[in-house]
Simulated assay, not measured.
Amino acid sequence: MSTLLAEDDVLYRQHVHNLLMQHLPQFGPVYTASNGKEALELSRQHQPSFVLMDIRMPEMTGIEVARQVWSERPNTRIVFWSHFADEVYVRELHKIVPPQTVYGYLLKNCTDEKLVSAIQAVVQDEQCVIDREVRGVDSRSQNKITGLSDAEYEVLIDIALGLTDQAIASRRFLSRRGVTNRLRNLYDKLEVSNDQIESDEWGTTFSLRARAIRLAFKRGLINAQLLDEEEVQLDHWLSRYRLEPLD
């Protein structure tokens, strides 16, 4: 058996490496990676049975590394270890976890004892171990009333990137009415309209579009890293409409 430890923070990486050597030496050897690209390369080279991995890393996110690892070796045990229980990560995990695969998701504020225990449960006992806070986020994400559909999530990304209704309709192959319906459903699920206040002096208080983006950030549905990645996809789409510069 072997283990891959992927963590960009050198202090966290060294601390967890020491924990593994002290409490779980049978899981060795332990290969370490400081970014996502290196983690994927080491995974392909050594094919470890167990991966302990941060979600936010340079080069590639832990989610993207896991997608590649599981596509090649779906029985690999992975424990995600992160500061964040953002709903965006929970949504992405639901899309990539293979059927019957055992994995874990712990927050970095957990104790050393809990981390070691969780690793043993995932690897040896074949039990999924999900942090309580992450389970709460997952429950909200899967709830029909509060959870966003893929279509609603797409329109959230588009307005967060600053697209107009017309541009969204073109990008998503929708009518203007279709865009309006998706936005209405998004506002309902984020309860944006409940914040609206009307005054005789200035009319409505909030831009529902801007308020939805604010609440989505607060809820962890979007974050700066996600929008940076989505901006790249948007640039690919827009490139067909940009004129070539004149000589």
Rank of each mutant, 00 (worst) to 15 (best):
L19E: 05
A160G: 02
N18W: 11
Y241R: 10
D150N: 15
L4Q: 00
V97S: 01
L215Q: 13
S2W: 06
V129H: 02
A33T: 03
Q196G: 05
I55V: 15
R240P: 04
L226R: 10
L5V: 00
E154P: 02
G28M: 08
E152F: 04
V116D: 09
S199E: 06
D200M: 10
A224P: 00
E244P: 06
Q120S: 13
L190D: 04
Q127T: 00
L221N: 09
E198C: 10
T180W: 08
L234H: 03
R132Q: 15
D195P: 08
R177G: 07
H94F: 13
G203D: 06
R240V: 15
S2G: 06
N75K: 15
L174C: 08
Y12R: 11
A160H: 03
H17V: 09
F50M: 05
R172V: 08
P74D: 00
A212H: 00
M21W: 09
E201N: 06
V65A: 01
Q196L: 06
D158I: 04
L208V: 00
D200P: 13
L234R: 01
L186K: 07
S199D: 05
E41T: 13
T164A: 09
L106T: 08
L243Y: 01
A66N: 08
D138W: 14
G36Y: 04
I197L: 13
F206P: 02
S207Q: 08
A33W: 07
S82M: 03
R91L: 09
I159Q: 06
E38I: 08
D54L: 10
H83I: 15
S71Q: 14
